[in-house]
Design a binder for these strands. Structure first.
Lengths: 260, 260
DNA sequence: GCGCGTGTTTGACCCGTGTCAAGGCGACCC
DNA sequence: GGGTCGCCTTGACACGGGTCAAACACGCGC
């Protein structure tokens, strides 16, 4: 711990936008200052590869801003995004020598990085961190399985509707009270059509057609290619085929955030 | 610990078929005897519901024999299997009040069950158990993501071929040395066509057609509806679109067992 | 033996979505 | 300004695989 530094008021963590919600929050002050010492902030341009598929994996960490995609490409070039990481999600894979999936920047990103071996030592040294990690991974597992359900037995239209509702929910939750009025019906898609297609297991053309059809039916209104207003929530939920995604419903099981 | 009992030689664990490979193996003798005290063996007929979707989840445990399916059904009846559990996999979800997925017996099964709260106390009391659990869940996450890749961007024929290769691999690994010769090309499908369809995100009709076509092309030979011989491994691997599934390849990353 | 139920296979048809090709729109550079 | 490059949209067409219907195979009870 750096003498004279105060994590709460001075260190790089002090200005961190995700400090209220990130993984590190669960640690006590002493551990947090150790984490601060280990961490370094890095930025990547959209499209940059943070960790390549099947390669050594020197770092893990948190998304501070922007979006990462977790993906795999098969030999003939087809690729599937198996997870989107938004702030304050964690990226990387602890306790494995190689990353089975590539991690790339879907937008410009800011990451809070830890050397993986040091981070693993930290988990080992502090039970409560490892426990929190277990809970996190369990939620990611639930989320991945929810996504399997969508990929395996829902139509593209249902997947798009679900995706928009989940994004909306996640955006709304991150808003301050004052913004709720506006946020109530607003959705921002933080990624390209290409990434949407790779995430939803379809093609850009089909994504585009599906969205345009939803707009023509006045279920959504397009502000631009990445910004929408949900005009008819009821029909939107019906289209998704998942009543539990209703905007006014009870808090979603964390798995349904789906973006992990 | 029961006085006079010896876990190694007398207790119910002594005859357990999965004791060399199950989760509990990682514990030391003292913890194992505590686990033995907490556990109870239960059997269920094929089709029985072990844990219903969205309901309270009183137990967790290991599959001793048979196959469990982890699944979710959406309102209109479509359902997706998001995981198959074979011995010695664990079932149930720790540290969550409700199960987001149903767990049902795909065949007659024998389970080694623990009351969930007691099992969680055990994890909390014994670091090495919780650590092992974290590793297990991380592998399941990798497996779920591998499956997302298959569901999202491979054809049904590719999925069927991958599934058979993975089953074969898993079966072969569980064989004793002496059986290897025969096991080299043998596959048993432990579940019905209906479950295969729900797992691979398709229909029984398409599953059936795909398998018959593979047999007609002499890639596999059908002994009966659930037993096959892989005749042309090369083409089988090519059909799967995943070179890493080759039978003679290096050990699969655990994620590829896919059945967790 | 027979009838019945369940699981699997096969055929015919057609719809959703992938493929291929072209065009629009905005951003950036020379 | 014009040209080029990504990204998104739109259209025409083809095909994989879903749906519906029927036949078959096997096990079980009577």
């Amino acid at each position: 711990m750096t003498i004279g530094s105060n994590v709460e008021s001075q260190g790089k963590c002090a200005q961190c936008g995700i400090r209220q919600s990130a993984f590190c929050t669960s640690a006590d002050a002493h551990v947090r200052s150790e984490m601060e010492r280990l961490s370094h902030i890095r930025t990547f341009k959209a499209g940059a590869t943070i960790l390549a598929e099947g390669e050594d994996m020197p770092i893990v960490g948190n998304v501070v801003s922007g979006v990462l995609r977790v993906q795999k490409t098969i030999s003939d070039g087809r690729q599937q995004i198996v997870g989107l990481l938004l702030p304050p999600d964690m990226f990387g894979r602890v306790f494995a020598p190689l990353s089975p999936f590539a991690i790339e920047a879907a937008t410009d990103v800011t990451l809070c990085c830890f050397p993986r071996p040091a981070f693993e030592k930290l988990l080992t040294a502090h039970r409560e961190l490892e426990h929190r990690m277990l809970l996190t991974v369990l939620e990611e597992l639930d989320a991945a399985r929810e996504w399997m359900l969508m990929l395996g037995c829902q139509t593209v239209a249902e997947r798009v509707a679900s995706f928009l509702l989940i994004l909306h929910r996640r955006f709304k939750d991150s808003c301050r009270e004052a913004d709720i009025g506006w946020a109530r019906m607003y959705v921002e898609i933080p990624i390209s059509r290409r990434d949407m297609a790779a995430y939803l297991g379809t093609t850009v053309e089909t994504i585009s057609r599906t969205i345009q059809t939803m707009a023509r039916k006045n279920v959504i209104r397009m502000l631009d290619t990445r910004h929408f207003e949900i005009v008819d929530e009821k029909r939107m939920v019906k289209m998704s085929g998942r009543e539990e995604l209703a905007i006014s419903a009870d808090p979603l099981p964390s798995a349904m955030y789906g973006a992990h």
